[in-house]
């Protein structure tokens, strides 16, 4: 499998997800659901690495992507005055995608997976509020929360289907991608999802940058030395992991 085939796989899943969420009013006002291709790539890691993968895994990946689309739709609801039709439908879009994820797994009789994923969603909302309730969370706790928010349902999916060995790569890569996005937006003085809401992160941006470098170096090393990952997958991961920093360097240059 080469990079073109990887892209084809990711795109195929993307179009399957879009098929599941087709709803004319939502399409008109809120557009297609947000699907993070980076996250989708890391969800598909076992498949891309040649693991056995049947209809159930396929359905579960679509369901997990719908969970993230639902949460992303709700993150777009403004804190105050969400009275425009677009905003009102943004609320409903999230609920609709949630219902679809539940329906997909219910039809596939994956009741135990629904339970585990529901626990993940509850936990994600709890961790998201950490950035709102101004409690005394430490820098490490907040970074841990970001990692959970970005990857917990995928971790659950991988554990459920016994793809345990991929969890580490996926979690570290998604944390890294998220932190890089935050820092890049922060440096451009644009709105950030986490930093803006946390004094602890805001006053420790340097620490965050050090953390990014540390995770990136260690992840690349672990990927390169991995006996599990095939060469084309290693290449694809390293390319994705370093892409964001290259962009930053080009911008800075």
């Amino acid at each position: 499998m080469n990079e073109t085939m990887i892209t084809q796989q990711v795109n195929q899943f993307k179009s399957d997800i879009l098929m599941q969420t087709r709803q004319s009013t939502l399409l008109n006002y809120t557009g297609t659901p947000i699907i993070d291709e980076e996250r989708l790539f890391f969800t598909l890691l076992p498949l891309l690495n040649g693991e056995d993968w049947d209809k159930s895994e396929r359905i579960s990946v679509i369901a997990i992507s719908l969970i993230f689309s639902a949460l992303a739709a709700h993150d777009l609801v403004k804190e105050q005055n969400a009275t425009s039709r677009e905003q009102q439908l943004q609320v409903l879009a999230g609920d609709y995608y949630s219902g679809k994820y539940y329906q997909l797994l219910a039809k596939d009789k994956k009741i135990d997976l629904i339970q585990q994923l529901s626990e993940c969603v509850a936990s994600i909302t709890e961790h998201k509020t950490r950035f709102y309730d101004q409690q005394n969370y430490t820098f490490e706790q907040l970074v841990g929360s970001i990692q959970l928010i970005e990857s917990k349902p995928i971790e659950q999916f991988m554990e459920y289907y016994s793809f345990h060995d991929y969890v580490f790569f996926m979690k570290e890569a998604l944390l890294l991608a998220s932190l890089k996005k935050e820092i890049a937006a922060y440096e451009r003085m644009e709105a950030t999802f986490y930093i803006d809401k946390s004094t602890v992160l805001k006053t420790n941006v340097n620490l965050l940058q050090t953390e990014i470098k540390k995770i990136e170096n260690s992840l690349i090393q672990d990927v390169r030395s991995s006996e599990l990952l095939k060469e084309h997958v290693k290449h694809a991961i390293v390319e994705r992991v370093t892409k964001c920093s290259l962009e930053t360097q080009l911008r800075e240059g």
Binding site: V77, E79, Q80, A82, S98, A122, T125
Partner: peptide, 14 residues
């Protein structure tokens, strides 16, 4: 605010 209401609703659904 709206965001807290969204999280609360999502939490209850979950």
């Amino acid at each position: 605010n709206n965001r807290v209401a969204m999280y609360t609703g999502d939490f209850l659904f979950a």
